[in-house]
Simulated scan of single mutants.
Amino acid sequence: MSLEENMIFELHTKKRTWKIAVRITDMWHVNKHNGRQVIEMLFMDQTGAKIGATLWQELFREFEAMLHCGSAYVIQDIKVVENHSEYKVSTIPFLVYLVKTIVKEAEHPEIPTNVHVITPFVDIINGVAPRDTLVDVVGVVAEVIERKTVNPTYRVIVKLRDNIDRDMILTAWEEYALQLDDAIEKNHFDRKSLVVMLTLAKIKDSKDKYPLSIQNIKHGSKLYVNTDIAEI
């Protein structure tokens, strides 16, 4: 008998057999401290709920060629584990491992291309947004504080302003800093508002001389500016 498809919010660690219909909305390679490689993914179902998924290096040959960011799949016999990551990709407290898993690409038009849940600055400032959960944020660049685009560390710091005039410091590192610096340069002569959206951003609490801020993670974040935001 065919298994009924489950929603992401139904997943937990006490059941061994699951079947989910999801779209891969993000996908990136990571080198672990022990030298092993993994592919990290973000699965999203038709409700817009998301959960992190991991494919270990030992299974690259079996699964890597069939997994594509933006495609939808029916995935069966996944392993659901507790999420003990320092930064979680969603509020779902679990992760998915692809192990002895059945993966089939499928047409699922009811699953959106992506859904971004924007975290208001006020929730970050007031501590409502969990510090261990990555967030999507959007705002207008109100001030450029620092642009350091010389090796070894690329860094661009700006003040973002939301639609109710609350400010938040955004620090972009490495390739994200170069992308933001390029957008600032191109926007300099346009004299238009520069709107920025950063996805999967980590919240960094105030420490010593450093203020509360949002920053990109090393892998997985995406930076969108102006026209890119309009497209999504």
Score class of each variant (00 low, 15 high):
Tyr176Glu: 01
Arg147His: 12
Arg155Leu: 15
Thr149Asp: 02
Asp132His: 12
Asp132Trp: 02
Thr149Ala: 07
Arg155Glu: 08
Ile169Met: 08
Arg155Met: 11
Arg166Ala: 02
Gly139Lys: 03
Thr153Phe: 07
Ala172Val: 08
Val156Met: 04
Glu146Phe: 05
Thr133Ser: 00
Asp132Arg: 07
Glu143Asn: 15
Pro130Ser: 07
Glu146Tyr: 06
Asp162Ile: 08
Lys148Asp: 05
Val135Thr: 10
Val150Asp: 02
Met168Gly: 00
Ile169Gly: 01
Ala177Leu: 07
Glu146Pro: 02
Trp173Phe: 08
Ala172Trp: 07
Val140Thr: 14
Thr171Met: 05
Glu146Gln: 14
Glu175Met: 11
Leu170Gly: 02
Lys148Trp: 04
Ile164Gly: 03
Tyr176Ser: 01
Thr149Met: 13
Pro130His: 13
Leu160Asn: 01
Ile157Arg: 15
Lys148Asn: 11
Pro130Ala: 09
Leu170Met: 11
Val137Cys: 12
Pro130Tyr: 10
Val138Ser: 05
Asp132Cys: 01
Glu146His: 14
Ile164Phe: 02
Val141Met: 07
Arg166Trp: 04
Asp132Lys: 05
Ile169Cys: 05
Ile157His: 09
Leu134Gly: 00
Thr133Tyr: 02
Ile157Glu: 13
Met168Tyr: 04
Ile169Gln: 06
Val141Thr: 06
Val141Leu: 08
Arg161His: 03
Asp165Asn: 09
Met168Trp: 01
Thr171Ala: 04
Thr149Arg: 14
Thr149Gly: 03
Val141Cys: 11
Trp173Met: 00
Tyr154Ser: 09
Ile145His: 11
Arg161Cys: 13
Arg131Tyr: 11
Ala142His: 08
Asp167Ser: 10
Val135Trp: 09
Val137Trp: 09
Asp136Cys: 06
Thr171Arg: 03
Pro152Trp: 03
Glu174Ala: 12
Ala177Pro: 05
Ile145Val: 15
Leu160Met: 14
Arg131Gln: 13
Arg131Asn: 10
Ala142Arg: 10
Val158Gln: 13
Val156Ala: 06
Val135Lys: 08
Tyr154Lys: 15
Val156Lys: 06
Glu143Arg: 14
Val138Asp: 03
Ala177Asn: 10
Val137Met: 12
Lys148Ser: 11
Val144Ser: 15
Val138Tyr: 03
Val150Gly: 00
Asp136Asn: 12
Asp165Ser: 09
Trp173Tyr: 06
Val137Leu: 12
Ala142Met: 10
Trp173Glu: 01
Ala177Cys: 08
Asn151Gly: 10
Val137Ala: 07
Pro130Phe: 08
Asp167Val: 07
Thr153Ile: 14
Thr133Phe: 01
Val138Lys: 08
Val135Gln: 12
Val156Thr: 14
Met168Phe: 04
Leu134Glu: 03
Leu134Arg: 00
Arg131Trp: 09
Asn151Met: 11
Pro130Leu: 01
Thr133Lys: 01
Asp162Gln: 12
Ile169Leu: 08
Asp167Gln: 13
Thr133His: 07
Asp162Leu: 13
Leu170Phe: 12
Ala172Ser: 11
Val138Thr: 13
Arg147Leu: 09
Gly139Trp: 00
Thr149Ser: 05
Ile164Met: 06
Ile169Pro: 00
